[in-house]
Design a protein around this nucleic acid. Structure first.
Lengths: 215, 215
DNA sequence: GTGTGTCAGTTGCAAATGCAACTTTTTAAA
DNA sequence: TTTAAAAAGTTGCATTTGCAACTGACACAC
């Protein structure tokens, strides 16, 4: 399942027309710049470049909520409402961002443009996909032991790839962040699982040896 | 913020027209019955009654993923893809369910009906709201200690209500399920927090005494 | 009244986990 | 090739947490 993109099924010509329709504004940012137009209730579309959504905790920790690549979207609607003030959107590279007002997006378009509804349909897909990813994350985090978190995660990847030997798509440090557990505790648990013959693993390569129907 | 409903801004007359347009099928179920039409890739709309989405773990545990009331929607798009086989939708009461095929929903409507795009727009709102709730849940579950989970949860409710004395909207047993922690461990932690003067609490009534900007 | 069930609250204990402080290996850069 | 910086891997220790097994309060049915 490849992710839906915001301009799927919309031609370049239509995108141009759309800009009028939606009163879309495009702005350029340089690497490292912070995007501030979010308060205004608009939808951001990453036309080119990469941005990151960062949360700053009160104790100074910065958490990467999400990384958004070309054709990705961001906006108030898409992240949590708590801590409204302390979410920042930072450009990792030079970026071109298109802003569309929610008002215009959700109002009935008097031109009855087909690309208008296509865009909303694409947004629906994108948000649904994001929702599913969040559900998966909740499913993992709701496991009460580290081992069960690992097993739930491994099973997920394994099922997705259709293989029992999987490669974790990020570093093990990042995996421990994703699972919200201590890195050393996680590695310790993986070692135990190796010793018990439940898995075989070396760095990011993991082979599932346990009976998956058990979990 | 009150939740969007699927038929917002659509008149009863339009709903009837829509049924033709979408080839919608309405079925009645009795209390306790299981709904099975989900494989077919359709969207379920609860016209009347209450349904519950249940997950059965391999070890026999049943987890309530969601309770859906009148005008709520459910479907493959809206819950996690793992464990596809073992999600059940059960009617808690007598129910009337409208099924709309995703195909018809996502295709361009040749009649260019306005209610068609309104419906998709409403779905977008519903899914976004769900997404935000899931983000909140992830934020809570990603806290590594029981105390931080509680504080994050209390802050969320407090912020929502604009008060420092809050009433937990479900039983404390259910709260421990929501936070994915042991009930007795949670009560023990709340007792400690009382003793340390961080909160005041009696059963479901909690008053926040700590400085919220600290967390 | 008596029984039955749910919810809140408690506590001892063993196990799991986070934290800190390391070493070793791998990767990337100069 | 050398060097520096990440990432992987390890371990001891204190703390947190889950588990199990209780008690007491309240509601509702018979």
């Amino acid at each position: 399942m490849s992710d839906t993109r915001i301009f799927d099924n919309i031609t370049d010509g239509e995108i141009d027309k759309m800009k009028d329709c939606f009163k879309a504004v495009t702005r350029k940012y340089i690497e490292g710049e912070t995007i501030n137009n979010i308060e205004s209730g608009s939808l951001g579309i990453v036309v080119s470049g990469v941005v990151e959504i960062i949360r700053f905790d009160f104790d100074g920790n910065r958490t990467i909520l999400e990384r958004i690549n070309e054709n990705g979207i961001f906006g108030r609607l898409f992240f949590s409402q708590i801590d409204e003030g302390d979410v920042e959107i930072i450009c990792l590279t030079d970026c071109e961002i298109m802003f569309v007002d929610y008002e215009h997006l959700t109002k009935q378009c008097h031109n009855a443009c087909s690309h208008h509804s296509t865009l909303i349909r694409n947004m629906l897909s994108i948000v649904s996909e994001k929702s599913i990813k969040l559900s998966n994350r909740v499913e993992i985090l709701s496991q009460r032991t580290l081992r069960k978190k690992l097993i739930t995660y491994f099973n997920m990847i394994s099922k997705e790839k259709g293989k029992k030997n999987i490669v974790i798509p990020f570093s093990l440090s990042n995996l421990s962040d994703y699972l919200c557990v201590d890195r050393s505790a996680m590695l310790r648990e993986m070692k135990k699982m190796r010793e018990e013959g439940l898995i075989d693993s070396h760095a990011k390569k993991v082979t599932i040896l346990y009976d998956q129907t058990m979990f």
